[in-house]
């Protein structure tokens, strides 16, 4: 097969990226970034990494774009202050970046032979667990510690965002995500899409055990649906002191920790699963994690509390 389509895709990605960095208006830059994300998810398809492509489509196309556009909406417009960096500065930076890019490029065009890979090891151990998706197995079995700690990172990020709440609003609800102007089309979308989206999200989580997909992709889709409902003004963001909210946030990490510690009794130690029950345990952990991810991502986009608790 010819490489031309791949070259074209790479060219498109790099063009969009350059434009994103070069454009003056910050909202235009965000749109450029969303386009880069969409194109990258196609690139991941071409790299045979369908799981990553799904993640990129959900995050790049949905969550990050929304987060950044909302930031643009809330940042006050400022008159253009022409702080053109000193020519010497940008020439120097440009040179430095080119050198780094050239170095990386020189390394990637010389692939090592035979290719460095852990695929055979990953394949050899998969039988024990009864799951069909190798990426899920890596995430929830071989490298479960990374995944567990990454979920803690998410909880910490949420705490970090909440820290920025002004003292008098602590415990209250984040600022509304309501659109500028109420619109029938938007409300209709927010009524029709979420049921479908929830099914798709659940499907991705469930399917993730054996096919591409998984907790993070499914959780992001669920979060996106929640955010859509909030943007259409059908629901307000919840108050951050709510007990249910807190419990949903920690549900995933807690179930994961319990499964991990249970390994001391029912298997060979922390985060190991008895072969007979590996699949059900992993699926339960994934379900809990997806729910927590959905809530955390939604609250991360919603931001710190901006109203006093009722």
């Amino acid at each position: 097969m010819t490489l031309l389509p791949d070259l074209a895709l790479v060219l498109l990605i790099l063009t969009a990226a350059v434009w994103t960095v070069a454009v003056r208006d910050r909202r235009d830059a965000v749109i450029g970034f969303i386009v880069v994300g969409l194109l990258l998810s196609l690139a991941w398809v071409r790299l045979n990494a369908v799981d990553v492509a799904l993640t990129e489509a959900a995050i790049g196309g949905g969550a990050t774009g929304l987060l950044l556009l909302r930031a643009c909406a809330r940042l006050v417009p400022r008159p253009a202050e022409s702080v053109l960096p000193h020519p010497a500065m940008w020439i120097l930076t440009g040179l430095l970046c080119s050198v780094i890019a050239a170095g990386l490029a020189a390394i990637v065009v010389m692939p090592v032979e035979p290719p460095a890979t852990l695929a055979p090891e990953a394949a050899a151990n998969m039988g024990e667990l009864g799951l069909g998706n190798p990426v899920t197995v890596v995430l929830l079995a071989y490298r479960a510690l990374d995944t567990l700690l990454e979920k803690v990172v998410l909880v910490l990020a949420l705490i970090g965002v909440w820290t920025l709440t002004p003292e008098q609003f602590w415990g209250g609800a984040p600022a509304s995500l309501r659109a500028q102007q109420s619109s029938g089309a938007l409300r209709l979308l927010a009524q029709v899409l979420p049921p479908v989206g929830v099914v798709i999200g659940v499907y991705l989580v469930w399917n993730g055990a054996d096919h591409p997909g998984g907790t993070f992709q499914g959780g992001t889709v669920l979060a996106a649906m929640w955010l859509l409902v909030m943007m259409a003004d059908l629901r307000e963001p919840p108050e951050i002191r709510l007990h249910t909210l807190r419990l949903l946030v920690i549900l995933g990490p807690v179930v994961f920790l319990v499964a991990g510690f249970a390994g001391f009794w029912i298997a060979n130690g922390f985060l190991s699963y008895p072969p007979a029950f590996a699949k059900p345990i992993i699926v339960i952990v994934e379900a809990a994690l997806a729910l927590s991810i959905a809530v955390i991502l939604g609250m991360l986009v919603a931001g710190p509390a901006a109203r006093a608790p009722r």
Partner: peptide, 8 residues
Amino acid sequence: LGGWQPPL
């Protein structure tokens, strides 16, 4: 962890 030998 989990009895999975590094580097996997």
